[in-house]
Amino acid sequence: MLGGTGSGHLTTPLLEVAGLVKHYRTGGLLARTGAVVKAVDGVSFTVAPGETLGLVGESGSGKTTVGRTVLRLELPTDGVVRFEGTDLASLAPGELRALRRRMQIVFQDPFASLNPRRTVGASVAEGIEIHRLAPKREIPQRVANLLEEVGLDGSYASKYPHEFSGGQRQRIGIARALAVEPRFIVCDEPVSALDVSVQAQVLNLLLDLRDHRGLAYLFIAHDLALVRQIAHRVAVMYLGTIVEIGTARTVIDSPRHPYTQALVSAVPEPDPAKATARIVLVGDPPSPAAPPPGCPFVTRCFHPMKDERCVAERPRLRPLDGRDVACHYAEVNAVGGR
């Protein structure tokens, strides 16, 4: 079994994120009137070589921002990101660009992530050219091989993105990321824009590539069932913080945080015979510009023991039953008998 809980790990981590913080200042007309949005507010986790960590949350939870700051596509406000032991903040711009060979990203929207004015071949070859991974005359062959590896025809290289369906474009995006032979890929909702029947194809492709190339993924998604399918470990985010993290089996099959329990319950069950009582949360997540001072989930929490402490004191992640959970009363199951 790969990985362990959030705090411990069996192998040296490939990626180590500690105390990651990303704040944005929203535009007020005057600089002073703008509020500070705490998109990511102190997030720590590790990803081992070959491991997939699922990062689950709703919109505004900060999961996408985590993915982008980990790759330094956005600069973190605070915190440390180490890749293969190197603190990314310590690198000069050139060194960071060289390191990008090892860590890649696949985006959610296959319509926006490819340059409409460049051929598919040019997009896939981009990384090979930047890092001079092959002599010029060998590039077309490399590109064709990559396209075939993701299940496309090698001759597609001369076509433009608009000639392809969403699923095909997502495969092209994956081929572009693979071109630089990375060890780690941030998959930012890679299938949520695709048709159901195509989602499964792309998911299987990501699984195949992981097996063949020994890739590690940070798999960002809002769909717990999807994450259950691909991730070894799962981190559940709410309002910029991780509320529960552990192996996928532990966290999803016996969630301890009330929010995780609600998420699990909200996953549509295709079998009406199995449909159990649903937890329907009331209200919406609070704005990340004005999070509650205590537990971020307190405004929607249905835990019977919820009290003043939850309002005042932010719960820390602590180990419990083989996972880490941030809830003062996680020992008591909020939904008895589950």
Binding site: H222, A262, L263, S265, V280, V282, D284
Partner: peptide, 8 residues
């Protein structure tokens, strides 16, 4: 909508 809001 978000998953938990979908259910609502």
């Amino acid at each position: 909508l978000d998953v938990t809001v979908q259910a609502q």
